[in-house]
Amino acid sequence: MKENTLNKILIVCCLLAMFSCKARKIVAAKTSPVVAKHQSALALELNNIRSQQLTFNTFSGKARTSLNISGNQNDVTMNIRIANNKKIWVSITALLGIEVARAVITPDSILIINRLQDIYVKQPFGYIYKYTNRQINYGMVQALLTGNAIPSLLNDSAKMLAANNFVTLSGNLDDIIYRLMLDTSLKATQTSLISQEQGVSLQVNNSAFMPAGAQKLPSQIDINSVAKDKKIQVNLHYVKVDLNQPQDYPFTIPASYTPQN
């Protein structure tokens, strides 16, 4: 693995996305009986979708991962541990199982150790805005890693199409056009986010669902991101997943390492 690409890979592994979106605030207005009926059906379906998302206190997964950053290909293994809504811990290993990096991301901070160059990053969460849109948030990263629907797409302004037990939600959030497809189990299978104004897009495909206790999640998560002249492709293949098992999140910065701003 080339050292001059490692930092980019670390950011990608931690974030797995180039932008996110916030739900637009909707101004209350009088609605016709037809619209009210649609909104009632939508609210019921959104609750059903939320109830079918993967739930856990802790998540542990091992994924064989292929990363392509603007044509630069790298194959690594990612060990991912998550404390729900609190922290994401990632260990990245290359050939022969040698750890090349470790990271911890929380809603407030980001920590990265680069073992190839003996450097580290210790910054507030906003550090990631050097690499991505300012609207990205922790919840989106966690949702993508676990195959869940992005929470902000499950909003009461969405257009819903239900046919043959499949559901499609679509709409606009600020300047972002989105489309979310869910299967018969109401699991997210395809997510599309496009912002022509910002010149960015995100396409996510979830497939090959595997059991996780009494639940299931995609064993294959394929992410394609374009941000102007930057193209990133991430292919995660989970080979092992455990839910609600005791986890630790070790992270120690060696005294000899140099901080990177």
Rank of each mutant, 00 (worst) to 15 (best):
Gly126Arg: 08
Met140Asn: 08
Met140Phe: 07
Asp156Ser: 10
Gln123Ile: 09
Asp156Asn: 07
Ile177Tyr: 15
Gly147Ala: 01
Tyr131Ala: 08
Phe125Lys: 00
Pro124Tyr: 01
Asn133Ile: 04
Pro151Tyr: 12
Thr146Arg: 00
Ala163Phe: 08
Ala143Pro: 04
Ile128Tyr: 13
Asn172Lys: 14
Asn137Ala: 09
Thr146Leu: 00
Ser157His: 06
Gln117Thr: 11
Arg134Pro: 10
Asn165Gly: 04
Phe166Thr: 05
Tyr120Glu: 11
Tyr131Gln: 07
Leu169Thr: 01
Ile136Trp: 05
Thr168Phe: 01
Asn133Cys: 14
Tyr178Pro: 00
Pro124Phe: 01
Ala158Arg: 06
Thr146Asn: 00
Arg134Phe: 13
Arg115Ala: 12
Tyr131Lys: 11
Gly171His: 02
Ile136Asn: 11
Lys159Cys: 09
Asn148Arg: 01
Gln142Ile: 08
Asn172Tyr: 05
Asn165His: 14
Pro151Thr: 07
Ala158Ser: 11
Ile136Tyr: 03
Ile128Arg: 11
Lys130Val: 01
Leu173Met: 08
Gln117Asp: 13
Phe125Leu: 10
Asn137Leu: 02
Thr132Cys: 15
Ser170Gln: 14
Met140Trp: 08
Leu116Trp: 11
Gly171Trp: 02
Asn137Gly: 07
Asp175Ser: 09
Arg134Trp: 10
Tyr131Glu: 02
Asp156Val: 07
Asn155Trp: 04
Ile136Thr: 14
Ile119Thr: 14
Leu169Ala: 02
Thr132Glu: 10
Ile119His: 14
Gln117Tyr: 06
Tyr178Ala: 00
Gln135Asn: 08
Thr132Ile: 10
Ser157Thr: 09
Phe166Pro: 04
Leu116Gln: 14
Leu161Val: 14
Ala143Thr: 04
Leu116Ala: 09
Met140Leu: 13
Leu153Asp: 02
Ile136Lys: 10
Gly126Tyr: 11
Tyr131His: 12
Val141Asp: 13
Leu169Pro: 04
Asn133Met: 07
Tyr178Glu: 00
Ile176Tyr: 06
Gly139Arg: 07
Leu173Trp: 03
